[in-house]
């Protein structure tokens, strides 16, 4: 308890004697199907040459916290940054196993997925306190004013955790980064297509600024 108090205090003072700077935990948060795992895979492919998570069009594919240790990235100036990448299950306020039935799953499989998904949401929330910086991945083709997005970002702000907003899926016609920028004007927003790697260099530069 004393250690946690001191950690919070040092965090506020931007000083952490309990951990080295190379042990930064960078979390990927957001609603389901925003592209968190696709972005995690893009980062791992680019810098480690391997994938991290499985992806699917069906929501709640990631139902457990996934961690990739020692991800080392470099920017154009040759500066290096090492972090642990944490891919989290999408945060939602509703999970209906019947939605999975509609996507062709069997009843037992759908119920199991729903149960795991609820646990995944709880784990994501519990892990918020462990993060040093968070990338909130939003689907830029969807309405950003959902309460889940506002609640996640508001809680990160209350915990003094630096936040970068990623407007994903910019390869799609309906993508609209401006709506996300106007919904959260106090944060930097970087548009990417995690799937095709579009504007991914801008994203890496933003990560350096986030964790400076």
């Amino acid at each position: 308890m004393v250690k946690k108090f001191l950690q919070n205090l040092f965090k506020k003072l931007k000083f952490n004697p309990f951990g080295r700077r190379s042990h930064i935990k960078l979390g990927l948060y957001g609603p389901p199907n925003g592209g968190k795992s696709t972005l995690a895979n893009r980062i791992c492919q680019d810098w480690l040459g391997e994938e991290m998570s499985s992806v699917s069009h069906i929501a709640h594919e990631t139902r457990e916290i996934m961690i990739k240790e020692q991800v080392n990235i470099k920017n154009k100036k040759g500066k290096e940054l090492t972090f642990s990448l944490v891919d989290t299950p999408g945060i939602a306020t509703r999970i209906d196993y019947e939605d999975f039935l509609k996507r062709g799953m069997k009843k037992t499989q759908a119920k199991k997925r729903a149960k795991e998904a609820t646990k995944g949401v709880i784990d994501s929330i519990k892990w918020l306190d462990n993060m040093d910086a968070v990338i909130v991945v939003l689907d830029s083709t969807k309405d950003p004013y959902s309460q889940v997005n506002i609640t996640i970002i508001g809680n990160l702000q209350a915990r003094d955790i630096p936040v970068l907003l990623v407007a994903n899926k910019i390869d799609l016609k309906r993508s609209n980064i401006e709506v996300i920028e106007s919904a959260f004007p106090q944060y930097s927003v970087v548009g990417v297509s995690a799937k095709y790697g579009k504007q991914i260099e801008d994203f890496y530069e933003s990560v350096f600024k986030l964790v400076k």
Partner: peptide, 22 residues
Amino acid sequence: REEEVDLIEITMEEISPKFKGI
């Protein structure tokens, strides 16, 4: 803010075939 996130967490704990969330 922390109550909103607690509300989501408790909702998830109570999800069942009858209660699908909020």
